[in-house]
Design a protein around this nucleic acid. Structure first.
Lengths: 143, 143
DNA sequence: TTAATTGTAATATAAATTGTTACAATTTTG
DNA sequence: CAAAATTGTAACAATTTATATTACAATTAA
């Protein structure tokens, strides 16, 4: 299964939750990537790639062939936004570190270690706050 | 003063806090962008651009000319990491929205409005958690 | 057997980020 | 005043990341 590029400031969370919202609204149907792509207005291959990721994290099942498509792998009230975020997350909230700070400088020497601590802490704050929200809660807002 | 591109998955927070850490360590000196750049190991023009942003938000003062440079505009224990983050932030924690979701689809029609609410809420969570941390706390970790 | 679909590779295009060069304006020092 | 060092910023180049597109083998239902 395909792996995305190693960084995130992108539409992946938005795309993933859009896909999952559609699936949640039709829990008994196998929705095609083409149809989903038409709602998001992006290329169907992007949808299939994201669906691959969501399958890997157990949120979705897909099947091939005619009448193929995807559906949720568990009820929407058992899917937290944290799970979705973690599926697509591949960079930190506060961005990237500089790659080669000067090791001869007392600050440059240790900054990335200290940033790492901070980044991890903030990441946990975000995840904890998303853990309390379910996909069902999100979907409920649509009429 | 110059404006950066309208999105963030970049090294701007890392660069800004690195700059401010150096300034905090030498509160009485005017540090040059060249010297700072040598510690971060990036181009001095990038440092000057970021210093411009930090001046705009009142964290730093700079002066031109020979013996010019920059220093903190207030004590490091009066600078919160939230202020730094807000100075450089120009995108959301959960990424970008898709630009043209299908208005004829009940989900596509409202998704960006609903994402906006979620993005705002998560943004506040991050900012609140950074508000309790000062630059001084961060700098204290270096030896 | 045909039609529709996923999965995925390969490549192309677009967008964002970072780096570089250049130089006017400013300021200090001799 | 002249020289040297520095900021501020414009213009542009290079690199990296993100998204889109084309293509097609494999699968599945009818």
């Amino acid at each position: 299964m395909l792996i995305f590029a190693p960084d995130m400031n992108n539409t992946r969370f938005a795309t993933a939750i859009h896909i999952l919202t559609l699936l949640a609204n039709s829990p008994d149907e196998w929705l095609s990537s083409d149809w989903i792509a038409g709602s998001i207005n992006i290329n169907p291959v992007i949808v299939r790639k994201e669906l691959g990721i969501l399958q890997n994290s157990g949120l979705v099942i897909s099947r091939k062939g005619k009448e193929g498509g995807s559906k949720l792998n568990k009820p929407s009230d058992e899917i937290s936004l944290a799970e979705i975020y973690l599926s697509v997350k591949n960079s930190e909230v506060l961005g990237k570190k500089n790659l080669h700070p000067n090791p001869k400088c007392p600050v440059g020497k240790d900054i990335n270690e200290n940033l790492e601590k901070l980044f991890t802490e903030i990441s946990h704050v975000v995840i904890d706050s998303l853990r309390h929200k379910t996909l069902k809660d999100f979907v409920k807002q649509f009429h």
